[in-house]
């Protein structure tokens, strides 16, 4: 029982911490040109921080013309969740309706907490408790952030444009764990900037995604046996 309580405390604190950055998402989304409702629906329906930031980031630069690129960026950013779902499926053993709900809650945090537990019962509990707690805080604080964002008439005066870029710095930095990944990051960063004057808005981010595929293929050709 004491163990379950401490797992519940972990789940709620992870939810609260993640929810806090829902405030920045809400504010940035409104600054990008979405309204408060669209911002809240994104958090409810998409419910995947990286994809949401990518979507509003591309819209911020290119508006309506960038919509196809914004959708593509969000979709590609969401690929992680598919891998989390693969890892969680044998643990959760869900059927039909449960699976529909479980899939929506399959994100970085719920999977992370679940997989760090020792037995299946705790893994299940950790997944649902963290998933639900993140879902509640993320959506409430997105609304708060969106309302705050509406109060700021000029986002640049408040540094919100810099905050959007900094959000991705904070998201990507802990992932730069080995040299091939760092090479991918530097090339993608450079390609996105340098291609910007020559292609429509939204496309540079997709070209950055192509860099990942190219480096992956190149490393694979050089060492067919390696894991990369």
């Amino acid at each position: 029982m004491a163990k379950t309580n401490s797992l519940l405390v972990t789940s709620v604190s992870v939810g609260l911490a993640t929810g806090l950055y829902g405030i920045s998402f809400g504010a940035l989304s409104v600054a990008a040109g979405l309204d408060v409702w669209q911002t809240c629906v994104l958090s409810l329906l998409m419910f995947s921080g990286g994809s949401q930031f990518a979507f509003v980031g591309v819209i911020a630069g290119g508006g309506v013309a960038a919509i196809p690129a914004a959708i593509a960026s969000a979709w590609m950013m969401g690929v992680r969740n598919g891998f989390y779902a693969v890892a969680m499926a044998p643990i959760l053993q869900l059927r039909k309706l449960q699976r529909v709900a479980g899939a929506q809650l399959t994100i970085d945090e719920s999977t992370g907490v679940a997989l760090s537990q020792a037995d299946t019962a705790k893994q299940k509990f950790g997944f649902w408790a963290t998933g639900i707690s993140v879902f509640v805080f993320w959506n409430l604080l997105t609304l708060l952030g969106a309302l705050l964002g509406e109060l700021m008439s000029d986002p640049a005066v408040w540094g919100l444009d810099a905050a959007a870029a900094a959000a991705f710095v904070a998201l990507v930095w802990p992932r730069l764990t080995d040299s091939p990944i760092r090479v991918v990051a530097i090339l993608a960063f450079a390609v996105a900037i340098l291609s910007s004057p020559y292609v429509p808005q939204g496309i540079p981010v997709l070209l950055a995604g192509l860099v990942a595929v190219a480096v992956w293929a190149a490393v694979g050709l050089r060492n067919p046996e390696s894991e990369c």
């Binding site: 590609m76 690929v79 959007a164 870029a165 990507v172 990051a185 530097i186 540079p204 070209l207 595929v213």
Partner: peptide, 27 residues
């Protein structure tokens, strides 16, 4: 899964570039 990691990092790094160093398609 390695490709998925690469893709995530590349998109995030690309977004840092575009949102940090580009304004209206100009560097």
């Amino acid at each position: 899964s390695r490709l998925a990691t690469f893709l995530t990092v590349a998109l995030m790094a690309g977004l840092v570039g575009v949102q940090g160093f580009v304004d209206n398609r100009e560097i």
